[in-house]
Design a protein around this nucleic acid. Structure first.
Lengths: 342, 342
DNA sequence: GTGAAAGCGCTAACAT
DNA sequence: ATGTTAGCGCTTTCAC
């Protein structure tokens, strides 16, 4: 590692306060506040100009900590997600950041790495930092969530598709999404459709499994093989290899995440299996990566932006009610080539 | 969109302050502080126990805003990146978050979307929020950076490989990385190697271009075609199509990012061109996506974790000097199949 | 070992 | 329209 050195790094923060501005402008500190905040009192145009000028000349910037202390709000929200380097979550995080910024809120980002202890610790830490609420993409379901109720902070669950009593939540319709995807595969004439199911920390039942089952049943098809592995590329890769080696090799696979599908794709390619010729594939998430795999993935797109906006709005938006709401968004099938469509 | 409603959302924040704890424990507020912060004064074990008990019973949590106000530090840093949904940046963000958390700092994340105005606005907003510094993955180079010097806040440039006087910076060795990748392609016997160059907002000269040039020159090879497009999958896709259509179609391509390479791959696949058989490919970044493309990409891996740690450390670490430093990390060639290796 | 109190910078009710 | 001032919750110096 090379190191180069040149002089002079710019200095830290300004010590100029509202008081300095007031003195410089020849007004009281209250007036400065009124100008800075546009209220609550009106200020004479001439005075306002003087103050603005003083602010500019002095390079004054309000101290957010003091404001937060006084107001009891930091205009900041926390986001806890499992892993920001997972494309689906990074997209979600970006959308949340944008939605929050829209309302003048900043975003404190933390990764739980799928670790429950970290998750709890982060929520508590965020609470201590006086965030106005946290959006939690939890790794686990109900039982564990109860611990959070004592955290004394507004929480909305994002990417959470089951009802969680006592919490606001927003998620995607896993059941319908899975049914749609599997139904599409069935439409291509497949009769042996495997499920590559992602494994969660909490061992709850994921509705994507149910959706797969229901779609099969509705078509009078037998239950295909199930293989369970993490919601990752590696997990998918392992799943793909296992499916390939199994006695009843399926002719189609429904993967519960794009990442898994990407891993499966690799396993299939390595084995010289053609997609969708020999085995068709459909997945879930609708991440950008799915559009550029080879072949491009047919996938159920989660409306990440809308979901993020709903979560932010439920947390800090104007209409945030006091009832707990469970918002479920529909996924949308994005048809590409991995399923067998031209 | 379905909506379900159930009663009772947990209540907001606790109004219990250090004063309440003091009263409950029968001590002064100072002692509570000593206990909470483990200093600066020692406290009798018995007293400490009483205080801890009071804290637990009352569910007290220190108010970070007040602490920040008093101390002049929010124990928070800001990160400004172009786009958190770009895998390379999301990885970087994750690493920065981790490194900051290690030191007890939280991370305020913002996306500039490659927009200069947004970038500046974010830096200023972060400064107003009393962050202790910002890590900036700027979209532009020197000239524009000058504006930030007035922002009166510590800044370190991340993912910045040129020296920026007056700023700390950490980046990867673009020149050597590119030379290595192109050299590897040359080692496979290619003599016509194109460059898929990413375009930046600031129109500075990217050393990857120079590296490509130097590697070619060192091998006595003619300059291959250059095609310029954004650092994205779409940009790569467009670049791939243009390269395919060009009169002097190359037998190898060096792409300046994995994302571009993924786009190129798609263009090549669509055209029925085999990789690496007909055209070999190497790229830059070393993101996870590169490992799971088909074929897997040979790429120059940026040590994101180390870079993030260095940036955080330069910003808030113990040894942060007052001289401006420019840290350049070496990239490491990850050899996979897209280059022609078995 | 413990406590009293000043003050960080800001907001807004109240006074003028 | 503008000024005065209390106090948000915390840290820490200085006294005991």
């Amino acid at each position: 590692m090379d190191t180069m050195t040149t002089p002079a790094v710019q200095a830290p923060r300004s010590p100029v306060t509202r008081k300095d501005v007031a003195r410089y402008a020849g007004v009281s500190t209250a007036v400065v506040s009124y100008v800075v905040n546009g209220g609550p009192k009106k200020v004479a145009p001439a005075t306002e100009a003087k103050v603005q000028d003083a602010i500019r000349r002095l390079g004054y910037r309000p101290n957010a900590a003091a404001r937060a202390l006084k107001l009891g709000s930091s205009e900041t929200i926390g986001l806890v997600i499992p892993d920001n380097s997972n494309p689906f979550f990074s997209l979600l995080a970006h959308a949340v950041e944008e939605a929050a910024a829209e309302l003048g809120y900043a975003l404190l980002l933390t990764n739980s790495d799928g670790n429950l202890a970290k998750e709890l610790q982060h929520v508590r830490n965020l609470a201590a930092r006086q965030v106005d609420g946290v959006i939690l993409s939890s790794v686990l379901m109900e039982p564990g969530l109860a611990e959070l109720e004592s955290a004394e902070i507004r929480i909305v669950l994002l990417n959470h598709s089951a009802d969680a009593p006592g919490f606001n939540s927003v998620g995607v319709d896993l059941l319908e999404g899975a049914k749609t995807a599997v139904g599409h595969l069935i439409g291509h004439g497949h009769t042996s459709i495997a499920l590559a199911m992602g494994t969660n920390t909490g061992n709850y039942y994921d509705s994507r499994e149910e959706g797969w089952l229901q779609a099969l049943a509705a078509a009078g098809l037998p239950e295909g093989p199930i293989v369970r592995s993490p919601f990752t590329r590696e997990g998918g890769y392992a799943a793909g290899k296992r499916l390939l080696a199994s006695a009843d090799r399926p002719t189609a696979i429904f993967a519960t995440s794009d990442l898994q599908a990407v891993g499966i794709l690799r396993a299939l390619h390595e084995a010289g299996v053609s997609v969708p010729g020999d085995i068709a594939l459909a997945s879930f998430d609708g991440s950008a990566e799915a559009e550029y795999s080879w072949p491009p993935l047919t996938t159920v797109k989660q409306p990440a932006k809308a979901m993020a906006e709903a979560a932010v709005s439920a947390l800090i938006g104007a209409h945030r009610g006091n009832e707990s709401e469970h918002l479920i968004f529909p996924g949308e099938l994005q048809v590409r080539q991995s399923c067998g469509c031209p």
